[in-house]
Amino acid sequence: MAKTCLECNEKIIGRSDKKFCSDYCRNAYNNTINKDSKNLIRNINNRLRKNWRILETLNPEQKTKTTRTKLIQHGFDFNFFTSTYTTKAGTIYYFVYDQGYLPLEDEYYALVKRES
């Protein structure tokens, strides 16, 4: 019985355990299968990257203060962050990779950079 490619249904020549006739068909098949999950991950990573760039732009000195309005004007989305850090006093810092922010009073935010 001749095996056929899972992507293009062409006859496969070669090893008995081959599933695809070429690298192109293998890549096309796997890209089709993983498309939905990759779109979700890509969109989240894009959002995180944008948030990181905003924090980096507004925090050139490694520690500064800004307003919620300024963050929102730049397109910052408070729903996307990579981790949190809780101090012994119970203060919660939100981090996007190494750039972080701390909500303060009157819609102000302290921006910090985590040391490596």
Rank of each mutant, 00 (worst) to 15 (best):
M1G: 15
K3F: 01
T4N: 08
T4M: 01
T4F: 10
C5I: 06
C5N: 03
C5K: 01
C5W: 03
C5F: 00
L6H: 06
E7N: 10
N9L: 11
E10L: 05
E10S: 12
E10C: 06
K11C: 03
K11S: 08
I12W: 01
I12T: 05
I12E: 00
R15K: 13
R15F: 04
D17C: 01
D17E: 10
F20L: 02
F20C: 02
C21G: 04
S22D: 04
S22G: 05
D23W: 01
C25D: 05
C25S: 05
R26T: 03
R26G: 06
N27Y: 03
A28K: 14
Y29A: 08
Y29H: 15
N30Q: 08
N31S: 11
N31G: 07
T32W: 02
T32C: 01
I33S: 07
I33R: 11
N34Q: 10
K35R: 14
D36F: 04
K38N: 14
K38M: 09
N39A: 10
L40G: 05
L40R: 15
N43L: 13
N43F: 05
I44T: 13
N46Q: 11
L48M: 09
R49C: 08
R49P: 00
R49D: 13
R49A: 15
K50D: 12
N51K: 00
N51F: 00
R53S: 06
R53T: 00
L55A: 04
E56A: 09
T57R: 11
T57W: 08
L58C: 07
L58N: 04
N59V: 04
N59E: 06
P60V: 05
P60K: 07
P60R: 09
Q62T: 14
K63Y: 08
T64W: 06
K65D: 09
T66C: 07
T66R: 02
T67S: 15
T67R: 03
R68F: 10
T69Q: 13
K70D: 07
L71Q: 03
I72D: 01
I72K: 12
I72N: 01
Q73D: 15
Q73C: 09
H74C: 10
H74I: 01
D77A: 11
D77L: 10
D77N: 15
F78H: 10
N79M: 10
N79W: 04
F80H: 14
F80K: 03
F80L: 03
T84M: 06
T84H: 01
Y85K: 12
Y85M: 08
Y85T: 07
T86F: 03
T86V: 14
T86S: 12
K88A: 13
K88V: 12
K88L: 12
A89D: 14
A89L: 15
G90E: 08
T91S: 14
I92V: 15
Y93G: 01
F95H: 08
F95M: 09
V96S: 08
V96M: 08
Y97V: 07
Y101D: 04
Y101M: 10
P103C: 10
L104P: 02
L104H: 06
D106A: 13
Y108I: 00
Y108G: 00
A110V: 02
V112K: 11
K113G: 03
K113F: 06
R114W: 13
R114D: 12
E115K: 13
S116E: 14
